[in-house]
Amino acid sequence: MKSEKSAPALALDAASLKRQVDAAIASARLKVEPEWRAGIDAHFQAIAKAAALVMEFQLDEELDPAPVFSA
């Protein structure tokens, strides 16, 4: 199993992330008050920054996900 870094795999600019949140709100039919939006966008930027660290990490394709472990 090898691991090596590759180029960042997702857009982190505020406009791109805001569009992603727009789409999620629309598809889930959420009612979002205008004054909530800045907080939501800030949180999504933090999530995307964390996700970028994960997405840039190269993993072999045969590595299955491990959502559950047996104790």
């Binding site: 889930a28 949180h43 994960v54 299955d64 996900p65 491990a66």
Partner: peptide, 19 residues
Amino acid sequence: IAGSAIPAAWIIKAQRFRR
């Protein structure tokens, strides 16, 4: 609400990284 915008690919990659 921010979490509801996360694409599936990010979640699956995080679970694969977990392994």
